[in-house]
């Protein structure tokens, strides 16, 4: 099994690969459309500005990801990668997301500090293959200023300046707002669960 970590120039991908390596998974970092469409699983990571997702339209990456989704390839979006799976973000309103999850990402309200940085706990709303074996209220590491609201596909939520989506799931497509690769043993378990999903 090969997991392709999609490289579109947004953030430190080596930490995601390092975490997968430690789990014994074969992961490659790539921006090559063929490698993306040939992978058994996809991870779309990312930190920073929503505008960075525009780079996914280069080199046929977008078409390759869409094709993979049509072939029901499991896909995990992390942080900005999760937000890109939504319709849009007020951070870069001129850009469209993939609209797998029909929601708009918005900035945290002004009464709380932003970015939301640190360890916060997950409230699991419904069962998910991604969260198998995790106790309720597990802590994970967040670093983001925009968030996805609660939607019908929310499987776990988090509270900071109101409640927002921490984990979303639709079919074989998952999004996590936090960084599993930086969330210690809890994060590793989530990545392990993703690795173990049937291809």
């Amino acid at each position: 099994m090969t997991i392709a970590i999609v490289d579109y120039g947004a953030g430190n991908l080596t930490s995601v690969k390092k975490a997968l390596d430690s789990l014994g998974s074969r992961a490659i970092i790539t921006s090559d459309a063929e490698q993306i469409s040939g992978a058994d699983k996809l991870i779309v990571p990312g930190v920073g500005h929503f505008a960075a997702t525009a780079a996914l339209q280069r080199n046929g990456m977008l078409a390759a990801i869409q094709a993979a989704i049509r072939h029901e390839t499991p896909l995990l979006g992390i942080c900005l990668g999760m937000q890109w799976l939504c319709a849009a973000s007020t951070e870069a309103p001129e850009l469209a997301g993939l609209n797998i999850f029909a929601a708009d990402c918005t900035h945290f309200p002004s009464q709380v500090k932003a970015p939301h940085v640190g360890w916060n706990d997950l409230e699991v709303i419904r069962e998910s293959g991604l969260l198998t074996g995790l106790p309720q209220r597990s802590f994970v590491y967040f670093a983001h200023s925009y968030r996805v609201p609660l939607i019908e596909h929310t499987v776990a939520s988090c509270e900071y300046g109101g409640v927002f989506s921490a984990v979303v799931e639709q079919g074989r497509i998952f999004g996590v707002q936090f960084h599993p690769e930086k969330s210690g043993t809890v994060g590793k378990k989530i990545l392990e669960n993703f690795c173990e999903l049937p291809c």
Binding site: G11, N12, V47, G48, H49, P115, A143, S145
Partner: peptide
Amino acid sequence: TLITCIAERFGSQA
């Protein structure tokens, strides 16, 4: 300006 320079490339969280 170095702050902005690094933030634009790697994000403010970095």
